[in-house]
Structure formats: C-alpha cells, structure tokens
Nucleic acid binder design. Structure first.
Lengths: 207, 207
DNA sequence: GTCTATAGAAAGATAGAC
DNA sequence: GTCTATCTTTCTATAGAC
C-alpha cells in the first residue's frame, strides 16, 4: 500500500461549512422546539441534531450531555419573561395587561412561553423538574411577590403561577377544546377579575 | 440421558402462588403508583412488574401492551371523581366544598387525584395525552358544564379545570414552595372567591 | 399461570478518521 | 470542526420450558 491517503493536500484542511457559533445556535434552537413539543424524555439527541442539520455527536461536543443541553435551553427560554415583561408591569392597569398577555401566550400553537411548556412536558424527569423549579422559584415567583399588593403575597403569587400553568396545560398540552378553541376576548373577560383578586390589594376580608 | 425431567410428577402441576385476578389487580395498582410518580415514559414495565411482585412478561400477558395498561390505569383513576364527587356537588355551598376539596387533593404527597397527575406527567407521549384528553373532555368537562351557572358555561368550566391542573402542577409536580408549603386555610380563603366567579351565576357584566 | 431467556429496536455517549 | 461507526445500556415484546 504505497499511498493510503491520497485524498487531499495537508496544507488546506477544508473547514466543512459552518462555524462553531452558528452550529451551537442551531442546535439550541432545534432543542428548544423539540423539548417544547415532546419534553425531555420524548425526544432524542439524534432528532434534535437532525433538525439542526448536524449529527448527534455534535450535540455532545457542544453541550456535553443531554442534561446540560436541556439546562441551557431552559435558561435561554426563561431569560426574558413574556407575561411579566417590563411593559406589562409598567402598564396603568397592569392586571388587565397581565390578563391579556396570559391569554395570548397560552393560545394553542403559541410558542413564546415555551419555557414553561418545556418544563410541563419534561416534569417526568426528576432532573428536568429540578432545573425548572429553580428557575421558577428564583425568577418568576420572586418577581411576582414584589408585584402583588396586599396580604399573602407569597401565596397569591403562587396562585398566579398556577393559573398560568393551568391555562397552558389545558390549552396547549392536553388541548381540551373548551379552552383551546375559546375566543380570547371571552377568556380575558372571565380571567380579568380573577387576576385582580390575585395581584391587587384588598383581599384580606374574604371568606 | 434417561430422565431429563425428574423434577415433578405430571399429575399435579403446582399453581404457582396467586390467582389471575389478584395478579392483575396488583399490576394495576403498581402501574398506577408508578405512572403517577414518573409518567408514561418515565417508568418501564420491568419496574412496574417488580413492584407488583411479578415479572415484566406478566404485564404483557394481562394487558397486551404498555399502552393498553396505561389506558386501563387512566380509566380506573378517572372513574370516580374526588373533587366533583356527588357529595360536593350536593353541598349547600358547593363553591366552598369544591374549593376545600381542590386544596386537599392537590396537597403535596396527596394521591387521590392521581388520574390528573398521571396525565400531566405523561403528556409528552402523544398517545397518552390523547387518552387523557378523551377522559377529561367527556367526563369532567361535561360534568362541569352542567354544573356551572350563568353565561359561558363551557369556558368557565374549562377555567375551573385549568385551575385544578395548575394547582397540581405547582404543588405536586414542580413543587414550588410558595404553594407546596402554603397553609390549606390560606389557599382556601384565596381560592374561594375565584371558584365562586367560575361556578356561580352573575359574571356576565365584568370587564 | 408463572417463569427464564432473548430477540429487535432505540437510546446516550464516545473513538477515531479526515 | 465535522463526520461515520460503534459501544453499552435499556426498552418493549415474545418464545418456550415447566
């Protein structure tokens, strides 16, 4: 065997196609879509990689493991809140603004709130649930507690989170027609007084 | 090899230990616990079988497949509702009764509502989600629609379901401390007016 | 009726060529 | 930096002994 490797010159190794940062970004975006749709256990690294245009091995190379990839995706989606956004919090009637945003982002097919959705779909994995608990507790729960007026801020902030989670479960995850096909205006009308009860003052004398 | 099978007489084949109905019941109970804890994808047939004291093969023998076993477990848990129980529906102040039940069954560690919990944990499996959607739509949603007074029964019934689902997500699945460690009395006090808004009449003029 | 043993597919992770 | 190929484990489902 005189020439075992006659393919190419040794001087100019061809840099395949894409650079590192673009590949990493593509994998992250693909993983975000896949986890939101099928959850941590419901999707494989091969599938994520294929949708990103690379092979499964690249995922391990860039993120170490599936779990680390998941953690990064969650961090990415939780970074800028869409319901508790600065604009909504600064609105004159922020209960109304929160309600409107809540209905919009939990619409079937809507993806802006996929951070929450990823957690809901992935809660069967203990490790995934723990990652999500950290983000919600230290992020959204804390924001809400400082926002809610009146007594029992902690509990009322938690109930607000429960309401958002429940809407997402019924409308996006299980897709029960009663809410999945409901008109946004109707939902807003029904939800607004509930949100008011939770975030505005004057709820200490009920019951 | 003169006597290849000298173990036992051929006249009295020993019926191992348990009868069919007891084994089936044990498998069903084990599967219910396992699915509630880890979801459809999060648990294997081996684990379910081991907790029931049998081998994985028996599960296939009694239920055909994992999916059929799951469907039977869901049917079993959905059969008698614990929040929408006849007693609660017949209570003088049924909004208060529903609220109390809602807080009780979504307490961390509580398992009476594991039908819902199983679905939440299993929603990443498309087939499991579909099984759950059928039960909720035709069962609880229908019951609620006939119970709710006033306009928009469909949407308000759905919102009630969303509230229960959200409580279960936050308190049992993700276990956010704000609600998981909250006093039941506080939660009842905060939730009662919300439940009233949803199930009692007179909510057509808000907004 | 219950078991051991295994087939066949798919998962995550890794080695090594180029 | 990217690939093909493979290791190891784990899953569901099934065949066959007793």
């Amino acid at each position: 065997m005189p020439s075992p490797r006659p393919r190419r010159r040794n001087a100019a190794p061809p840099p395949r196609r894409r650079d590192a940062v673009a590949t990493r970004k593509a994998i992250l975006a693909s993983a975000r879509r896949a986890f939101a749709r099928a959850g941590y256990d419901g999707v494989g690294l091969r599938e994520i990689a294929a949708a990103a245009g690379v092979t499964a091995m690249m995922v391990g190379r860039y993120f170490g493991s599936k779990e680390e990839l998941f953690a990064e995706v969650v961090a990415d989606t939780m970074r800028d809140p869409v319901i508790l956004s600065p604009e909504n919090l600064a609105a004159p009637d922020f209960a109304a603004a929160l309600t409107k945003a809540m209905v919009a982002v939990t619409a079937p097919g809507a993806t802006p709130l996929d951070g929450f959705l990823i957690l809901l779909h992935s809660a069967s994995s203990p490790r995934a649930a723990e990652i999500g608990r950290e983000w919600i507790s230290r992020g959204h729960q804390a924001t809400l507690e400082s926002l809610v007026e009146g007594p029992w801020q902690v509990e009322r902030a938690g109930l607000f989170l429960a309401l958002v989670a429940g809407l997402q479960v019924i409308r996006q995850m299980v897709e029960i027609p009663s809410l999945a096909e409901a008109k946004p205006a109707v939902l807003e009308k029904l939800l607004k007084p509930i949100v008011r009860l939770l975030v505005e003052q004057g709820n200490g004398s009920v019951g």
